[in-house]
């Protein structure tokens, strides 16, 4: 395969909780508490090739949205690099940053929050491409009309405001806005999570049509295993800031390797299996403020041994294109 379009290279992101004035004074006087650090993403590496759709899956607090935002250039990583077309996304300054980040566009989860309620949707969609001179201002109207038609909306709707649209229609507008920049990479953060099932199917079909017609490369973030299986070529499963398994979609769903992936699949309620005995994962998701030592999953893992408590397992190859971070794969005892 040719060089990757996007290279996420040992990226970490830490968020430090701001101290209050009192705490700052206390720390100057030598009585302060240690600052609280959330390790939202730790040491994640991932390559995305042109034309590929990668699914990022995990439960809340696993860092999937943070990783998406780092890739989109909204957050700068604390460590590591994100290379887009072999150029770092974050290190570029000024105009060159904007030039690069316009090639990566993001679609957010909540279409009620991501559209400016006071702007006509035609202006929302046109703003980016006109500002960055992708189209001339006087040609913007036709450009927007084409885009709206492409996402399945009547072009005459472009004079309307967001409140005149339903949730599914708004998500189409958000997708049109992202496509207006002619991006090379789309980052979609839970794009269908807030939609009803029947509307969700419409938006997923739209995404698959666009992907085929425009040869899109995309990162598709979701907590819904069924949705991700449907749209992705490869899937990365995240748990507490780390990728625990990365695999071509069909292989992953046929035979999950990591104990967390297996447990996650077991927990998902399924249509048509009938009333059944649940085998839920024991325990809670630990706080990312204070993750467990070693393998983050070990307190909930039925196979955990002493090595899992002491040493974090690296993501290692377990087959063609398959990676898993579990000591059980590397031989010896867990």
């Amino acid at each position: 395969m040719s060089a990757a379009l996007l290279d996420v290279d040992h990226v970490s992101k830490r968020f430090v909780k701001q101290k209050s004035l009192g705490e700052r004074i206390a720390s100057v006087l030598g009585a302060g508490r240690k600052s609280e650090i959330v390790r939202a993403v730790s040491d994640v590496s991932l390559s995305v090739h042109k034309g590929e759709v990668i699914g990022l899956v995990g439960e809340s607090g696993c860092g999937k949205s943070t990783l998406g935002r780092i890739i989109a250039g909204i957050y700068t990583p604390s460590d590591g690099n994100v290379l887009f077309d072999q150029k770092p996304v974050a290190k570029q300054q000024g105009r060159r940053t904007s030039k690069l980040t316009t090639r990566i566009q993001m679609v957010h989860q909540d279409p009620f929050a991501s559209l400016n309620p006071r702007m006509r949707i035609g202006d929302t969609v046109a703003e980016g491409p006109v500002t960055h001179r992708i189209v001339k201002a006087r040609e913007a109207d036709g450009y927007v009309a084409d885009l709206l038609a492409r996402v399945g909306l009547d072009p005459s709707y472009r004079r309307r405001f967001p409140h005149q649209f339903s949730g599914g229609q708004r998500q189409r507008i958000a997708i049109a806005r992202a496509l207006a920049m002619k991006p090379d990479l789309l980052v979609l953060d839970e794009p269908v999570a807030s939609l009803d099932v029947s509307i969700q199917a419409q938006v997923l079909n739209l995404f698959m049509d666009l992907r085929r017609d425009l040869d899109l490369t995309a990162i598709f973030i979701s907590h819904d295993l069924g949705v991700v299986r449907h749209v992705s070529d490869r899937v990365a499963i995240m748990y507490l800031g780390r990728i625990v398994e990365l695999s071509p979609t069909a292989d992953l769903y046929a035979a999950p390797n990591h104990p967390y992936t297996k447990a996650l699949f077991e927990s998902v309620p399924r249509i048509g299996v009938g009333r059944r005995n649940f085998h839920p994962i024991a325990g809670e998701i630990p706080s990312p403020l204070n993750p467990p030592n070693g393998c983050h999953f070990h307190p909930r893992c039925p196979f955990a041994g002493p090595r899992c408590r002491a040493e974090a397992p690296p993501l290692t190859a377990i087959g063609s294109g398959r990676f898993s971070a579990c000591h059980l794969n590397t031989g010896g005892t867990a």
Binding site: S60, H223, L264, F278, I281
Partner: peptide, 10 residues
Amino acid sequence: DVSIQGQILA
């Protein structure tokens, strides 16, 4: 989350 949902449904 799904793993917690599974516990509660059970």
